[in-house]
Design a protein around this nucleic acid. Structure first.
Lengths: 344, 344
DNA sequence: ATGAAAGCGCTAACAT
DNA sequence: ATGTTAGCGCTTTCAT
């Protein structure tokens, strides 16, 4: 690897001259600057950031700590962050936790050892004590999920309201046996969504046992399929289903298609998130659309600004985005005209 | 930030003793080791990787350079890499190029400045000369696409064979007016897939003008929709359509659904890749399934091994995975029984 | 306008 | 069993 010293020797000048020339220091003559830049380019010189960091320069890496990049929720976020950071000269580190607190801790240790400039994290349900400590020494920001121990800077969506709306839609249609299927209640998002579901039932004047709930840790496609089978096979099957997880929604849709369940005839369904295939599933899936793109962009811009201003702005900050119900064909009054979701 | 020196001072020992104790050097007494580890833990010491790198240690970061993480193709790869690297103590850097060679170059400059341990890259069509130079100094590996200037270590799929099979399936069904829609021909993958399509036509004894082709840079959902409209509105519309891009496939499916085109009655369709919604689209999408998961895992393992063995193994290496046609309901002989793909 | 030298945090060779 | 010292590549005083 070429160093400033190599350039200096070749040109018969000192390393400091080379360093100054490369950083366009006004004290260096234009001619020398030219020769240095020329040589640097010819020799393929690339500055060593590790050395710069030892001299106090900060890293240009921001880490994104999430459960699983395959979830299009998170890949959208990663893309938006990457795009916005690229403009400011930052690089994105990707750390997947698989919702395992020990994996999360290992990643945070590495990130800290690498002295990353900042961390954007979707924390696990109960982060390890050491993770909490590590984050205290790193500029960070919580995304979607919010754990009180991890500080008060958070970007997310109004999960309660999102599920309240989704459920209210079904209540208004006249459903009285509504099932909810969402992620684990131990996650702040899971808990809020469930609360939103229950609020809507209550506001609709429905008894508490009108709602049947299935919480699935981890919320995966497979679990969605299994829970759907249980729901359909069980006694007093519901006439409507609201979802509180994109992965579960994917599983539910697959299973309903396969079993040829008539939607919305036999069952009305409100999904969560808005994936590519949702619009063409059966009669079109009515679903809770979330402005993750905007949220991620806001998050990136906010962090960039924070990192660029010296005085470590640790003050609390909260940004809540609102979801909105996307009405398509998968919801109707109970016992309405039947459209099949399967392919016969 | 706590340094070994801080620990040394607090314990009244030298920095080397601290360093040795932390690296479990046999020369240090158990008692000292214990006291050092205790202090380190209490004080929240985290080693500084930048400093270690200056002493010759190599980075534990591997970069993945891809066009767009939202493409589930790439997010699957990122996940698989991340998972396999995690086990070996490596971190994943994510660099999105948006298929822009200048963005690609900027990323490679940063990665080089950060002295990443390795790079896994899906190169743009014509990488910048400087990108080529930079990659010569970094252990790297091409993925999916293969550019001769970037070395001869490559993991990918047999694009030619994949499209030959997909097209042959339609030829066997008796189609004689088959359209192909794929990514830009300037990409190695785009060129190979197109060649595969043409090979199948030729082998099926069809005249060259039996195939109509639409190549779309960049291959995006939107372009897929537009190209579909052109195809349907144009004269002598084809009776079958083969795709050579997942993003285009998504666009095509949306458009066909919306326009209520009867599949496979009016049009037989073979998609590319196998996304969640493909199985429940209309009559179920017949598509080219690709073993990206296996490919990514192989790629990760290979790179890990290469990085862990000192003698820089620069020898050529190629791994070609084979796709396989997933038969569902979207293909049938021309003019066969009609099933609607729309909902209306 | 340029050079010499110190020091960032760590490790390894060389003393005790 | 532990201490001293040099040096990795760079920036930044402090000379000249």
């Amino acid at each position: 690897m070429i160093t400033t010293r190599d350039i200096a020797e070749r040109l018969g000048v000192s390393v400091s001259t080379v360093g100054r020339a490369l950083s366009d220091d006004p004290r260096i003559s234009e001619e020398t600057k030219f020769r240095v830049r020329q040589a640097a380019s010819e020799m393929g010189y690339v500055g060593n950031r590790a050395a710069r960091m030892m001299r106090g320069a900060s890293s240009n890496v921001v880490a994104l700590v999430i459960p699983d990049i395959r979830n299009s929720f998170y890949s959208t976020i990663a893309h938006q962050l990457s795009k916005n950071m690229q403009a400011e000269g930052f690089q994105l580190m990707l750390s997947e936790t698989d919702d395992d607190r020990m994996v999360e801790l290992r990643h945070l240790r590495e990130l800290s050892a690498n002295r990353v400039a900042g961390v954007i994290i979707v924390p696990t349900a109960r982060p390890h004590g050491d993770s909490v400590k590590l984050l205290r020494t790193l500029p960070h920001l919580q995304l979607l999920r919010r754990h009180p121990a991890l500080g008060s800077q958070w970007f997310g969506v109004d999960d309660h309201e999102a599920l309240r709306q989704a459920t209210a839609h079904l209540v208004e249609l006249g459903h009285t046996r509504i099932a909810y299927m969402g992620g684990p209640e131990e996650l702040p998002t899971g808990a809020e969504r469930l609360r939103g579901f229950r609020s809507a039932l209550r506001e609709g004047g429905l008894p508490d046992d009108a709602g049947r709930t299935e919480l699935w840790p981890p919320s995966s496609v497979d679990h969605g399929r299994r829970a759907t089978r249980r729901l359909l096979d069980g006694p007093d099957a519901p006439t409507a289903l609201v979802l509180g997880s994109t992965q579960l929604t994917l599983g539910v849709l697959e299973e309903l298609s396969e079993q040829g369940v008539k939607v919305p005839g036999e069952l009305s369904v409100v999904g969560f998130g808005d994936e590519p295939g949702f619009s063409w599933w059966g009669p079109g899936l009515t679903t809770t659309g979330l402005p993750i793109q905007e949220m991620a962009t806001g998050c990136a811009l906010w962090l960039m600004r924070r990192l660029k201003t010296k005085p470590d702005n640790d003050g609390p900050y909260t940004s809540v985005s609102l979801g909105s119900l996307v009405l398509r064909g998968s919801t109707a009054p109970p016992g309405a005209a039947t459209t099949t979701s399967g392919r016969g």
